[in-house]
Nucleic acid binder design. Structure first.
Lengths: 244, 244
DNA sequence: GCATTCAAATTGTCAGACATTTAAATGTAA
DNA sequence: TTACATTTAAATGTCTGACAATTTGAATGC
């Protein structure tokens, strides 16, 4: 493995970066064991705590996993879809919450991405994903639902729509886009009337997918986008004018 | 801040998770200073190295940044688009390289996502993004170009297409999808003939965007997808039959 | 042959110390 | 008073050494 020259940045960051490059370049392959902390410390001419900090950085990115005991150590981790989902959602959520992204921009991105997988979903939707969508639609019609629960169900519905496309890479990519919108959506107070309208759009989408009608599904999705946009704008307008 | 009960997992992981939740929930806001390492160690009743490992985990996810010196410390970091891009690309690249994703699936996801922003790109493309696309097309026509350089230019072209949509959230989401395909594309040997065909599609796309013709751009993109798919399949077929 | 025990390797945690960096506080001179 | 140099304090970065906890493989005993 390569070493670090004489620059003055954090040693642990440099070491983490060096190992990360080895993994990204495929020179360290999945399930391969890294040298022990003591050996790495010796190799990079630093102390063990410094090596440990570097390894923790990599562990935080799911690049390695560690195992205690004899013949334990740090191993290159196979990045699972589940872990990738989690990181994607964390990153997307923070990006949206910290950068004053307008509701309009986030909404546009989300629906553009969902439209991307709608034709595939119309082609490949399964009884399973359809059942999930129907179940969420039913839940959204329940009277006693809180706004948060309604939003969560909305997210689940759209996740099912995305998963219907049957492309795991697409599902992974869109997980963040859909989930990250939830905090923004949670700011909206859903009246009985608006819930009814949204459930109507959801039903149109599910019906269209069931009938393999891509165009109809796209139209319903676009209509839902437009409606969501007006709801969001009302909230923003009310917030901008806090005089009672 | 909350503490951790008596479970037996890594203390540093638990502490990192506790702080991460504070940030995600907005209870720690951007640029807010965390307690010093000594104070955190005291608060969680652990040693300073353990706290440091936890902080390095958070730093690896760009959740915090640290600053040395008096009045330094760990601060909640505003996640920038640049940092988010980087993490997105790392995650997507590893996911594709480690999970035996088929070329077809990755290709389908990529072009579905690009189609998602093509209508917006046709609407909003700027002289700037068009110039970038033209420049990359020109580079792709140069004779002496290596396969790697051709691929890199291809990625740059598609990045410009995505950026044309003028939606930073969309650009962020697609950065990973486009970049992560490069290692797969790099396996393809681009003959003079195939380069010529690809440049033709790129030109059609750029022309369509320049003329605000969304439908034409979508058609060219789909044709490019189909052609890329045949190229990839040829490579896979040749690889599956290694008898000279 | 099988269960038990033991030893070794490795990560997890701790304590204390020193080095380095940074900005505020202080002192000094024009 | 202002400008500049010096000191100081607080914080992170790093090192050393030690011990605890965990896991595996081998030795041991029956």
């Amino acid at each position: 493995m390569k070493i670090d020259p004489d620059n003055k940045a954090d040693l642990s960051a440099q070491i983490a970066e060096a190992i990360r490059e080895e993994i990204m370049a495929g020179r360290l392959i999945v399930d391969e064991r890294l040298p022990s902390e003591a050996e790495l410390a010796d190799h990079f001419a630093v102390s063990r705590p410094t090596v440990r900090e570097a390894l923790k950085r990599l562990a935080a990115q799911s690049l390695i996993r560690t195992q205690r005991g004899a013949f334990g150590g740090a191993f290159v981790n196979r990045l699972s879809y589940t872990e990738a989902y989690g990181q994607q959602i964390t990153t997307a959520t923070l990006l949206l919450s910290m950068n004053a992204i307008s509701f309009d921009v986030a909404c546009e991105a989300r629906y553009a991405l969902e439209r991307a997988c709608t034709p595939l979903a119309a082609l490949r939707r399964t009884p399973d994903t359809l059942a999930t969508m129907r179940a969420e639609i039913h839940r959204q019609g329940q009277p006693g639902l809180t706004d948060e629960a309604f939003c969560a169900s909305d997210v689940a519905f759209h996740r099912a729509l995305v998963d219907s496309a049957g492309n795991p890479v697409l599902s992974y990519q869109l997980a963040g886009a859909v989930e990250a919108m939830q905090p923004l959506m949670n700011m909206i107070t859903f009246t009985a009337r608006s819930r009814e309208v949204i459930v109507g759009f959801h039903t149109r989408i599910a019906d269209a997918l069931e009938g393999h009608e891509a165009e109809a599904a796209l139209a319903a999705l676009s209509a839902l986008e437009a409606y969501t946009l007006t709801l969001g704008r009302d909230v923003m307008a009310a917030r901008a004018r806090p005089k009672r």
